[in-house]
Amino acid sequence: MSVSIKDVEYVAKLARLEFSEKEKVKFTEELNSILKYVEKLSEVDTSGVEPAIGAYPMYNALREDEISPSLDREEILKNAPDKQDGYFKVPKVID
């Protein structure tokens, strides 16, 4: 499989990244060389092999439904690039 500049543009949009035309060419080349490298995986017969979600199977990390303290709002908003009246502020979003 190889990717085109158009693919790179699509993926960039999904990832919320933007590139100059020159960068697009560079990223297309680099992605292609990495993809060519990982193509080796198709050699391996994996029919009937379960995917390993995690290094080893672990079960049931659960917490009880008990309230623990939240952060102070001041702490919450301290790192916010833009805020107002206790809210995080962004340009108008269209639903």
């Binding site: 917490r63 008990e66 309230i67 939240s70 709002r73 908003l77």
Partner: peptide, 20 residues
């Protein structure tokens, strides 16, 4: 409490006070 943390699910609190 919330599904992945211990913050309260109470409805109608002041904005951004039930967060961790």
């Amino acid at each position: 409490t919330k599904i992945y943390c211990g913050c309260t699910t109470e409805f109608g609190g002041e904005q951004n006070t039930h967060c961790c």
